[in-house]
């Protein structure tokens, strides 16, 4: 039983497909991804270069949201991320990585920000012997 099914796998060149391997894109999906990426890149550059929105905090927030959306677009249309490839293990590895990245980034920024706040005032240092 097992021998038979594996013989089948090794006979066709794309054995990994049957194991739920990496997905392939089509011309349409690549072009959709590229079109979305162009828009999602052009808009933040345009916003910052022209300063259309006067409030810098709002501009920064929009730029960050667009970047997050573009990362998802690249993951789906270029890297072909889905829940099925490699029986879901690529998705598991990515979720783990995202959790690690979020903990490391927010943790570092949070801790170092508070260290900065609680530092002794720096401007007196030049007067010290």
């Amino acid at each position: 039983m097992t021998t038979d099914s594996h013989a089948l796998h090794s006979n066709d060149g794309h054995g990994h497909d049957d194991h739920g391997g990496a997905a392939h894109g089509s011309l349409k999906s690549y072009l959709i991804g590229f079109g979305l990426s162009v828009i999602l890149t052009a808009v933040p550059f345009w916003l910052v270069m022209t300063g259309t929105i006067a409030d810098k905090a709002v501009t920064a927030l929009i730029v960050l949201v667009l970047a997050a959306v573009q990362i998802v677009v690249h993951m789906v249309y270029f890297l072909h991320m889905n829940t099925r490839s490699e029986n879901g293990w690529t998705m598991m590895a990515m979720i783990f990585t995202v959790v690690m990245v979020v903990i490391a980034l927010t943790g570092s920024l949070w801790v170092m920000h508070h260290l900065n706040i609680n530092m002794m005032p720096m401007h007196d240092m030049s007067q010290m012997p």
């Binding site: 594996h6 054995g15 990994h16 194991h19 690529t90």
Partner: peptide
């Protein structure tokens, strides 16, 4: 029985 893994089956992961 020897479990046959086609060459490179796990490379992508």
């Amino acid at each position: 029985d020897e479990h046959d893994h086609p060459e490179g089956a796990s490379t992508m992961l």
